[in-house]
Structure formats: C-alpha cells, structure tokens
Design a protein around this nucleic acid. Structure first.
Lengths: 194, 194
DNA sequence: GTCTATATGTTGATAGAC
DNA sequence: GTCTATCAACATATAGAC
C-alpha cells in the first residue's frame, strides 16, 4: 500500500461530502475554511490542493443537485401521458431526488445570490421552475386541475411544499419511502376529509 | 427644528427596517457592519450608538416576527369552534402575518442556529409549530381532516406551504389580498379538479 | 447622534518543505 | 497529498472629538 496514514486520502467527492454537511450546519457564509479543515481533519492548505477555493466547493455541490433535478424532466413518465399525471410524476420524483441528494439539494435551496456562482445556481433553479410551470399550465388547460388555480401560483406552492422537506427531514427517518406519496396527496387532494 | 441635517435621525426601529432588508438580501452572516452602514447612510460607529451589535439587530428583528405569529394563537377564532375551522383560521392568519411582516418573518425563517440568539429563535419557532400540531391532531381526531394524515407530517407540510411565500412574494405584488385564501384552498382542498 | 481613527481578531488564500 | 508558517484584506467593535 502506498498511503502514508490510516485514513484514505481525500478525493474531491469525499471532501465535498464533508463540506456540504458543514455548509448546511453553519450556512455557506457562516462557514470558514478553518471550519472545513477541522471537520475534514486536514489542514486548510490541503483543501486548496483539491479545489481552488470555497466558492468552487459550493459550485460543485449545487451543480450536483441541479443535475439530479433536471434529469427528472427527461424521464419518460414526465414527457408523455396526461399532463396531470406527468406533473404528479415530477412532484413525486422531485421529492425522491430531494431525499436521495438531501444535503446537496438543501444547500441549493438556501443559495442567496451574493456571488457569481450563487447567481448561476438561482438562474438554473428558475429555469427548472419554468419548465414545471408549463406542465401545470397544460394540466389546467386540459381541465385536470382546478380551474380557479393560477398556474404560476400553483407551481410556487407545489415547490414550496416539496422543498420544505429539507427543513425537517433527516436521513434514515421512519417512513421515508412513503413521503413522496404523502406530499403528492397533500398537494393534489388536500388535507380535508370527504 | 433641532435636527442638524435633512434626514431625520435614526431610531432603533427605523434602523432595524434598513438592517432587515440588507440581512435578507445578503444573508445575516454575509452582511458586514460596513454593508449596514452604507445602506443606512451613517457610519458604523453610529450604528453602535443605537444597538450593542449585529446580533442585537437580529434578535430585535426575529423577535418582532415571533411576537406577531404567537399573537395569532390567542385570537378568538383560533381558540373556539370546530378544530378544522380553528386550524384553517391559523393557516390564513399565518399567511397574512407573513405578508404584513414579510422582511421580519423572512429573516426568522432563515435563521440557522450558529449563535445563542439564533438558537433562541429556533426554540420559539418549534414551540409555535407544536401548538399548531396540537390543533391538527384535534381536527384529525374530530374526523375533519383525512384519516390517513399523520398530524406531525401534515403540520410540517402546512407550514412548508405557507412559509414558502417568503421565497417569491414581493410587497405590492398583484393579488396579495387573495393569497391567504389561495394558500388555504391549496392546503385543504388540493389542486386536482373534481 | 454622528463622525474619524484605530484596536484587535478572523478570513480566504499562498509559499514552500516533506 | 499533506503540512507549518504567513499574508493582505476584511471583520466586529471601541475611543474620543464635535
């Protein structure tokens, strides 16, 4: 073996996993390179061997989340069928991806726009939202969603509901496999008893 | 007149209004006292004349949001009547308060927990959530909400939906007066056409 | 109530050895 | 691939004049 210690050397990916955890705990701006070095167990300058700086770590993390979300829109069930069914598929899958890639999506949803990287992330998020809004519009036009629903508002409330999972879900929590279904039922059928 | 310039002197409240706007634009950690001084048009040390420091500005801002939210729970319509009606009232009023006190509530919802002040804010938020969760439980027990709804999950999705308004609503936006109603319909009746 | 000047600590990033 | 040592810039906060 060629390694000089007991712990395997970091790769960009394994360093990213540690980084994203700390970013989510303390916030991106509230996290110093010193915080990251302590959490990773290596020195600050060692981090700079893997990445150009703090902002690159953010870019890699939110890029991973965005790629996973956009992939949903290309799935067969999102591109063919009744508009309402396609929309419901996207909502369920968005919730699933959010849970699968929880720390990365959490970080994405907290990005504010201070730096160029953050603005790029916000732009891609808006693009994703617009593509879902078009799906909502189609479903309303087809008479499959309530007629009094304003498509843009409905899209925003949908994402508000789905995205709020990052506020409280913690990995391994009981009943995770039923969450995407519960979210879809909430959004499409509501809480009220009939 | 006793003032020495054209602009009225700052009070804690008027300084807070400027501060909260900047905190929401750049994030609390991303905002420096220099940023605040530039936005307020006075020097850094003048800010310290009004408050002890940056963290006190945060405490005053989120305290205002929390007081407004807790006041809802004491309103007559929240303390008497059918559980489902009381819950629906709280949801509508939470949306209203959120829109009325938008910058303060926005800041509250973004608090992470790095400092003692932030932990205090998170604790009061949890307390508010628990009191609403009890209302949801009552409504489920009374058979007024779907039986397959887990009360804690329902509460979280409710707040996720309402709180998401801060992500996109901007003051003066068209149709604001219908928003609390639209949110309540979404949450209780869902999007699907019947 | 506001200012200029400054103290004191922390930050992101680099140099260069091993 | 990791380290120690260091830097310039920027942070929060204070002192003291007007």
């Amino acid at each position: 073996m060629a390694d000089h210690s007991t712990r395997a050397a970091y790769t960009v990916d394994s360093l990213l996993a540690v980084t994203v955890r700390v970013f989510n705990e303390r916030g991106y701006d509230g996290t110093s390179m010193e915080d990251l070095s302590r959490a990773a167990g290596i020195s600050k300058s060692s981090i700079y061997h893997h990445v150009r700086g703090k902002e690159e770590l953010l870019r890699l993390a939110v890029g991973r989340a965005l790629d996973a979300l956009f992939a949903i829109l290309d799935e067969p069930a999102a591109t063919a069928g009744r508009p309402a069914d396609r929309l419901e598929h996207v909502v369920r899958r968005t919730a699933e991806v959010l849970l699968d890639e929880l720390p990365y999506v959490t970080l994405l949803l907290r990005v504010r726009g201070n730096t160029a990287t953050e603005q790029w992330a916000l732009e891609r998020r808006r693009d994703f939202d617009h593509r879902v809004a078009a799906l909502v519009q189609d479903a309303v036009t087809a008479g499959q969603l309530r007629a009094d629903v304003e498509p843009r508002l409905a899209t925003r409330l949908l994402f508000g509901t789905v995205n709020s999972l990052v506020e409280w879900y913690r990995p391994g929590q009981r009943g995770a496999e039923h969450l995407p279904d519960a979210v879809a039922r909430f959004a499409f059928d509501g809480l009220r008893a009939r």
